[in-house]
Simulated assay, not measured.
Amino acid sequence: MPVSESSMVRVPSRCTAETARATVAFEITGYSLHKGLGGGKFLCSPAFSVGGYEWCIGYYPDGYEDEGSEGHVSAFLKLLTKNAEVRVLYKLVLVEPSSERSIGVSCKVPRVFTSENPCWGFRKLSAAEVESVYLRNDCLMIECEVSVIKESLDIHVPPSDILDNLATLLEGKIGADVTFKVKGEIFSAHKILLAMRSAVFNAEFYGAMRDKGAQDITVDDMQPAVFRAFLHFIYTDSMPPMDGLEDDDKREMVKHLLVAADKYAMERMKRICESMLCKSLDVETVATILALANQYHCNYLKDACIEFMLSSNRMKDVISSQGYLHLKRSSPDVIVDVLERAAKSCKI
Results as ranks from 00 to 15, higher is better:
N137T: 00
I142C: 08
E143V: 08
E145M: 06
V146Y: 04
S147G: 02
S147N: 13
V148D: 00
V148M: 01
I149L: 15
K150T: 15
E151T: 14
S152L: 04
D154C: 08
D154V: 13
I155F: 13
I155D: 02
I155L: 13
I155K: 00
H156Y: 14
H156M: 01
V157G: 03
P158H: 06
P159E: 15
P159V: 05
S160N: 13
L166T: 01
A167C: 11
A167L: 06
T168H: 11
T168F: 05
L169S: 14
E171Q: 13
E171H: 07
G175D: 12
G175V: 06
A176N: 09
V178P: 09
T179R: 13
T179A: 11
F180R: 09
K181R: 13
K183G: 12
K183A: 15
E185G: 01
E185S: 14
E185V: 05
I186W: 04
F187T: 10
S188P: 00
A189D: 13
A189P: 13
A189G: 10
H190E: 03
H190P: 08
K191V: 06
K191C: 08
I192Y: 04
L193F: 12
S198Y: 08
S198F: 04
A199I: 05
V200P: 09
F201L: 07
F201K: 08
F201Q: 08
F201R: 13
A203R: 07
A203D: 09
A203F: 03
E204A: 12
F205W: 07
Y206L: 01
G207H: 06
G207E: 07
